[in-house]
Design a protein around this nucleic acid. Sequence first.
DNA 1: CTGAAAGCGCTTACAG
DNA 2: CTGAAAGCGCTTACAG
Lengths: 377, 377
Amino acid sequence: MTVDVVTAHNRDMDVTGHTSPGSPSDPGPEPRSDPGPEPRKAASIRDVAQAAGVSYQTVSRVINSHPNVREETRKRVEAAIGTLGFRRNATAFALASGVTRSVTVLTSNTTLYGYAATLQGLEEAARAAGYSLGVKLLTPEEDLDRTVSSAAADGGGLMVIGFDRLAASALDRVPENVPCAAVVEAPSHGRTPPRPAVWADDREAARAATAHLLELGHRTVHYVAIPTSVGTRRSEGPRAQGWRGALEAAGVTPPEPHGGKGWDARVGYDEGRELARDPGVTAILCGNDDLALGVLRALHHAGRSVPGDVSVIGFDDAPHSEFVTPSLTTVRMDFQGLGRDAFALLRSQLENDYRPPAPTFAGTDLIIRESTGPTAV
Amino acid sequence: MTVDVVTAHNRDMDVTGHTSPGSPSDPGPEPRSDPGPEPRKAASIRDVAQAAGVSYQTVSRVINSHPNVREETRKRVEAAIGTLGFRRNATAFALASGVTRSVTVLTSNTTLYGYAATLQGLEEAARAAGYSLGVKLLTPEEDLDRTVSSAAADGGGLMVIGFDRLAASALDRVPENVPCAAVVEAPSHGRTPPRPAVWADDREAARAATAHLLELGHRTVHYVAIPTSVGTRRSEGPRAQGWRGALEAAGVTPPEPHGGKGWDARVGYDEGRELARDPGVTAILCGNDDLALGVLRALHHAGRSVPGDVSVIGFDDAPHSEFVTPSLTTVRMDFQGLGRDAFALLRSQLENDYRPPAPTFAGTDLIIRESTGPTAV
DNA sequence: CTGAAAGCGCTTACAG
DNA sequence: CTGAAAGCGCTTACAG
């Protein structure tokens, strides 16, 4: 396929670390008794109290904007806070108050579009609610129980982006008494996720996309699967189920699905090469836009035109899908909405008086672009 | 340009929140004095001590794998830890020990490839070192000083992904006494970042890419800029400087640069339409691959072939760039390496006895694919 | 090898 | 409206 001529350039490092002023390598002229203008250690509530001539409890009242503080006292304390550059120690606050206002996200990926966009939705919701957000990457190498329990020990709640098997088993291992919510693949009928969760209707979206291809006149539709969080066979994910359901509803026997080996364009390319060899293949649904891109590329290399000879539909509506040629027909997903809604589910476990608002998830849309068309006559 | 026929589907929500067992809405049969099999509250060091029949200091020794504990005592404590499901409270640990082993990343984006890949490098390095990783998104709406100081108050160190103006000014505002490191754009000659930082040699990479186009016979090279962290004009970033430097070295007067208005393909498309109108344009360097994708699309719509009529080079080597048609000649950046190296810089400020290892950053490479070629004769 | 004390920086009752 | 006490769950010296 693509021949990459790699021209090595700039193998030299240009990475610089500057030692901070006052580092051991620069002892300075002489030890001074004067601590100097820049405070070495962060000011505490007690330092502020002393500077303002009040007790430290009063400082606590001011920083928590308690009503019962005389105006003049407050001013004095605030002035001291300003000059000392005081910032409340979040660790001590968490320990003393018992409220953590932090969540850590467990995810096996941060760069794939669906994951990254979900993460962004989570971040926005967390920030809006005044929570800090931690991220812990799930890897096959590390012991899952250790990873999960160390994340749980960080306090606060846990969010799981459960699009894959690794993340799904992490979700299964979250201890009962740890607040937790997840965004997951649409569960099979009658099954519920082990924890409060949100999901998009992948199954229905895949059904609609497949039906659209059948309506265009294609005799059958092939499927290139993404890995899935459920089952072991690539045909068991909700997108695969929706695809199969649409075919069966039309009286078409579903062909063997492809893929299931990864999320990226290379996998799509490899599967696309196989599909391109079969002249009977005229319509392909892909589990995501990256796979679809690889399939497009493989069809191009095989000399089969899109959509003239073959129609291709992706999934997710990644940002570049509108700008490739041919532009990609795909299913738009509101990952950020999923992230926001999942955060609300977690927050309702963390704060007793918090009721989650109406879900903001926008649903799924089939976006028709250039990569699909009627069958050639 | 692309006509999107949006078929609304599945606007219905399919988002489910399951209330956890024992929620207020399900009060259960009767209050029981028996707390039941599942512990409501996490076990503390004291609970473990009691269960094991030792003092809580001994438990502390065990969980910190202190040598001076009798083998039998250790066993007993470990058994108690197991049955109680004890996990050390990270907040209390941080407060008592003074070591935080956490960093929070300040970034204005998490989905653009360069940012996401840098973040992933940071995450890997942090995890390998046993640090937890927080992410705080920088937004123009929020007060920068507040955002920075709240992140600083979370304890641990700060990492800034400083590829844009917002992040650069966040970096300027980090208080002197807060440990901090950054990954930044290559600084101009004689200027140093306000904090320890790493960078790739964007300037040299852009120079090399431009020189490559000139060597192919192009009379001049046009530039579509990404926004930059320095200066106000789009021509001031290091990539722009490298591009201009290469032209001037060849005795070519640089044309006015385009872009600078955003990072995504839409901006590239808009700029590409302008460039496509000028038949004298035969070579275009873009500040990133998304812009390049938009430019490619605009050239396609204008009926100008790539690389037959126009050559295009991107920047960053995003995962999809290899699979678009024509595949994109681009500059590969080792963002993950930058992230790892930046973390080491921060860690050396956090741990007195830690010396950063040799940098792992792999440099930049020009990857030549299909979107570039010799000028048409 | 193990236990009793003091303290990390804050908060939440409890007193005045 | 403001101050003195106790405690969050752990650690680091200090004693035995």
